[in-house]
């Protein structure tokens, strides 16, 4: 138990050091920024889908609200950016609480209601007074453009979400969530507060993408409703997390790194093919590799669980 903890931690430290060096190396900052962004999204999504088994098909809304809160606070009220980003996180929490009643829905109902809610938010945001939310053109943050600072903030968030994932998988909450997934009624009879445990995971899974949204808004310095509430962002999050393996910690990281790389490669060269590849990958994953790469490896060689999580 102790030794593999050490391995995991040293891998995290090395990866962090490398990512911290990216800005001084001749490497593309945006590329690595978005790689970290997707690691964060996929890892946070794993908390609610991998651990709890709820598929929020409108997951993008947490990110979207995060981008807008930061953009509006900075551009309209002059709130300093780091503080605005914290407010994005708070907004994510509030949103997750507002949608807490939907947690009593199961399976496809939860997925659809969440999806529809994201659509509602998108339409509402796009129709807010232009003086506030910029309408369908969005808001520019070019006056605050600080790619280096936002890069390092994203690095911090990425490390934090991976560590949160690791903590969760060993924590009481993590065990409780696994029990609930296995047999909800039995877990309740054992004194596990089912709805409270789910709510905690839901809030955790919401605050991270909202923070990521705030940071990303700072990094790109532009926010608009179509990008902020794009269904494709949910899709990519799901695919990246599934590709690596839901319910594991390394899975979503590996999936995000690999699939984002592939996506970026294809997108740059054959934009139309990108959608096709994403679609085919989803079908393939669901039907042939539901556990993802890491998950399948662990299933094949259970001993691996001691080294990778």
């Amino acid at each position: 138990m102790k030794t593999y903890r050490k391995t995991t931690l040293s891998v995290i430290v090395i990866a962090t050091l490398f990512l911290a060096m990216v800005p001084v190396l001749p490497l593309s900052k945006p590329y690595f920024f978005y790689m970290m962004f997707w690691i964060t999204m996929a890892s946070a999504f794993n908390i609610i889908y991998g651990f709890v088994g709820y598929l929020p098909f409108g997951y993008v809304m947490f990110y979207g609200v995060g981008t807008y809160v930061t953009a509006v606070l900075w551009s309209r009220l002059g709130v300093p950016l780091p503080l605005a980003i914290l407010c994005s996180g708070a907004a994510g929490l509030v949103l997750s609480l507002a949608f807490a009643p939907t947690l009593r829905l199961k399976g496809i109902y939860f997925a659809i209601v969440n999806f529809a809610s994201a659509m509602v938010l998108r339409i509402v945001v796009a129709n807010l007074p232009e003086a506030w939310a910029g309408g369908s053109f969005g808001i520019s943050l070019s006056g605050a453009y600080k790619p280096l600072a936002s890069y390092y903030l994203m690095l911090a968030l990425t490390v934090a979400s991976v560590v949160v994932g690791l903590w969760l998988s060993h924590s009481r909450l993590g065990i409780a969530l696994r029990c609930i997934r296995d047999d909800e009624a039995a877990a309740a009879v054992m004194g596990i507060n089912v709805s409270m445990s789910r709510l905690k995971a839901w809030m955790l899974a919401a605050v991270i993408p909202s923070l990521a949204g705030g940071i990303e808004a700072w990094f790109t310095a532009i926010v608009d409703p179509d990008t902020s509430f794009n269904l494709m962002s949910t899709a990519k999050t799901i695919v990246y997390a599934m590709f690596g393996g839901l319910g594991t910690i390394t899975g979503p990281i590996f999936g995000a790194v690999f699939m984002y790389g592939l996506d970026d490669f294809i997108w740059g060269r054959f934009p139309l093919l990108n959608l096709l590849v994403l679609g085919v990958t989803i079908i393939f994953l669901i039907l042939f590799l539901p556990r993802g790469v890491v998950g399948s490896l662990i299933q094949r060689w259970p001993g691996l669980r001691k080294i990778i999580e």
Partner: peptide
Amino acid sequence: DNILAPVLS
């Protein structure tokens, strides 16, 4: 972990 379930709280 199965045995721990009732003492998680």
